[in-house]
């Protein structure tokens, strides 16, 4: 494994595990971040994970950069790399098409498919949550089939409704909060992804596996009502 340390400013250090997105690097990151989560060093403020990196935030009043690197190197020696990586499987119900997925037809046309085929391909996939970022609770998902890849819209929408499911290039994702964006919208989930009043404020965490389950508009309405 080619693990590198480098500073992010004077209050954080980045551990880089490689420079490509793949499940092996992702697994290494999960193993380390699970260990840090369970054994947080007392000098650590917090940590975040991304596609190929873990970033550890610290207080330079307590430790200097070099000392933090030493501490982390020491900590990494305790890691059991070949332990099976346990993960959560999360089902996300999606009502595809219609008003919720105004771009479903465009995605189908772009790929020479019917809308049902697009839904089928999207819902069959198993997706890895590589990281959470960009917006609270927003998952960067890997594993979408190239068969439904669709470029972003030429003109971004000013408002994408919260809980919309979209495609941008070979990525798929769900918008936790209303934001502007250029994603192709194919559906909407009744689940909240950002939960500001819960201890873990995000439905999804890095390392989770995600499945999308198609639901009807009636089911969507029912689930949305139950939620509120």
């Amino acid at each position: 494994m080619d693990l590198q340390f480098y500073p992010l400013g004077d209050q954080a250090v980045i551990l880089e595990f490689g420079n490509i997105i793949n499940p092996t690097i992702h697994k290494q990151i999960q193993v380390v971040s699970n260990y840090i989560e369970e054994n947080p060093p007392d000098w650590m403020i917090e940590f975040t994970t991304a596609f190929t990196t873990i970033t550890v935030f610290y207080n330079p009043e307590v430790l200097f950069y070099k000392e933090v690197c030493q501490e982390l190197s020491h900590l990494l020696k305790n890691i059991k790399w070949d332990e099976p990586n346990e993960y959560r499987m999360i089902e996300i119900p999606v009502c595809y098409g219609g008003d919720f997925g105004p771009d479903l037809i465009e995605v189908a046309k772009t790929n020479g498919l019917t809308t049902d085929e697009v839904i089928d391909i999207h819902a069959k996939g198993e997706y890895i949550v590589y990281m959470i970022g960009f917006a609270p609770g927003f998952p960067y998902l890997g594993g979408m089939s190239e068969k439904i890849a669709t470029p972003r819209k030429a003109t971004p929408r000013l408002k994408i409704p919260a809980r919309s499911v979209g495609i941008a290039g070979t990525q798929t994702g769900v918008y936790p909060i209303e934001t502007p964006g250029g994603w192709q919208l194919i559906g909407k989930t009744p689940l909240e992804l950002f939960l500001p009043n819960q201890e873990v404020p995000s439905l999804l965490r890095a390392g989770d596996r995600v499945h999308f389950t198609p639901i009807s508009l009636d089911q969507y309405m029912e689930m949305e009502q139950t939620r509120s």
Binding site: A12, A50, F51, T53
Partner: peptide, 10 residues
Amino acid sequence: MLSAAVSLGT
């Protein structure tokens, strides 16, 4: 670039 953490002052 791949998305990664940023911090105050980046």
